[in-house]
Amino acid sequence: MNTKIMMIDDDPDFVAGIKSILEKADYSVDVAHNPKDGFQALQAGRYDLLLLDIMMGRGAEGVALARKIRKDPKLKEMPVLIITGLREQIAFLFPGQSVHPHFVETDELVEKPVEPKLLLEKVSSLLALAEEKKQKVPG
């Protein structure tokens, strides 16, 4: 079965680049450009992984979306890869400090710009981890 990835990011140029990298690696990618459309799509469809941007709408709204996903019984197990340019945009507030994930059960964070190789590595390791977890549950 084809692995389905959802991507929520409001930067159309960045989305186009990442989408083509993932599609070349045989993943099927759906895109939403704001958190509202993204959450609706996640609820309507079935996705194996979410790529999530942080800075959208009025500010760090990707964080709010990640927290909403964590509370949703259907979505909380879904692995989330956060891809963010947060540091570039608001690092003046917190010089030299690290950006941290841990909003959902399984998540990881990479900062923009992303190396294609690193992206594919993270995607496949998160998918493998989720698969492993799924198989453990019934046993």
Binding site: H33, D37, R58
Partner: peptide
């Protein structure tokens, strides 16, 4: 094939919570 997003759509996305 992706259709390029218009400027108006980009602004609509930034204003999604309006």
């Amino acid at each position: 094939m992706d259709i390029e997003m218009s400027f108006s759509e980009e602004i609509a996305n930034v204003m999604y919570a309006s």
